[in-house]
């Protein structure tokens, strides 16, 4: 059991971070907190990608000079992918905050319960 936990600890970290973020998205009624939750949720996935790029005994993926031919490198591709995904995540947060600012201006609140209430009145 302990081995199982230990051998997969990068996945456990990913799961815990993702669930913390997901909890914020589902349970918090403040829209800014929801947006932060989304950010945490995505960060969990980024860490997952980065951890799968690690190769046992692998060194940094920079060419080792000299005669050595049996060098093991870690996989750099997931890092490159995640750079793109981080940009996407930042843009998502920016769009979310822009919409939230607009909501504050039009409704006077960023609390989901208030918003539901205000919308129901408008019907």
């Amino acid at each position: 059991m302990l081995d199982f936990l230990h051998d997969h600890y990068n996945y456990w970290v990913t799961i815990i971070i993702m669930m913390i973020g997901f909890y914020a998205v589902v349970a918090k009624s403040n829209l800014v907190k929801k947006a932060i939750g989304l950010g945490i949720f995505q960060t969990g996935i980024f860490l997952f990608y980065i951890s799968i790029g690690k190769v046992d005994g692998g060194t940094a993926p920079v060419k080792v000079m000299g005669e050595q031919t049996d060098v093991v490198y870690s996989n750099p591709l997931p890092h490159a992918l995640i750079l793109t995904a981080i940009v996407v995540s930042v843009s998502t947060l920016a769009v979310a905050l822009a919409i939230i600012v607009n909501i504050r201006e039009k409704f006077g609140s960023i609390d989901e319960h208030d918003l539901n209430h205000l919308e129901a009145e408008q019907e």
């Binding site: 949720f41 996935i45 998502t92 979310a96 919409i99 607009n102 409704f107």
Partner: peptide, 20 residues
């Protein structure tokens, strides 16, 4: 605006699942 933020939250979760 509220429709857009709802869509954004669910859409981002969907896209993150696809990424995963």
């Amino acid at each position: 605006l509220t429709a857009a933020i709802n869509y954004l939250v669910l859409g981002t979760i969907g896209a993150s699942f696809i990424l995963l």
